[in-house]
Amino acid sequence: MKKDIFYPKQFVVSLILVFTMVFFAQMAHAADAIIVVRDAFAKATPKGARTAAIYMNIKNNGAEPDRLTSITTELADKAQIHTMTMQGDVMQMRALPGDLIIPPHSSVSLSPMASHIMLIGLKQPLIAGGNFTLVLHFAKCGEMDINVIVKPIAASENMNEDTQNHLPQ
C-alpha cells in the first residue's frame, strides 16, 4: 500500500528553512539601507534664478555616525549645505563648516527656515511638478542618487513627525 505523499516532518523543516532564508535576506537588505533619504524636494525657481534650496530628511539606521561630505548635481555648478537662522527680522545664512554629521539611530532634517542644500550656479530653472537627480556622497555609505521633486514656490513646509534632530549648531 502506497503511503500518503505528505510528510509532515519534512514539511515543517522546509518551512523553517524558508523562513530562515527570508529572515536573513531581510537582515542583509536592512544592512544595505543604513542611510535612508526621504521627502527630498526643492521649490520651483523664478526665471533667471541662479540659486535653489533643497530640503530632505536623512535617516541613519546604523550604529555608527556617517557624514555627508559633498553633494553634486548636473543642474548646478556646486552645492553647499547651509544653515539659516532668524536674528530678529534678519535672515542669516551660512555655509556649514565641514561635513553634515548624521548621528547613529537618528535623522537630520533639512527644512525651510532651518537648513538646506543650496545649489549655486543653477543651469536651468526648476519647474513645479518636475524632478531631478542629486548625488549625495557619504563618508561610509558612499554615493547615493536621490530623486528630488519640485514643488511650487509657495509650497508649505514639509512637516515630518520624524524630524526631532536638527542640524548641530
Binding site: 521649490k43 523664478p46 541662479r50 535672515m91 525651510p112 543650496m118 545649489l119 514656490i153
Partner: peptide, 11 residues
C-alpha cells in the same frame, strides 16, 4: 535674485 528662500517665498 540670488536669494534661495526668503525672497522668492515673499514675492
Amino acid at each position: 535674485t540670488y536669494c534661495p528662500e526668503v525672497c522668492p517665498t515673499t514675492l
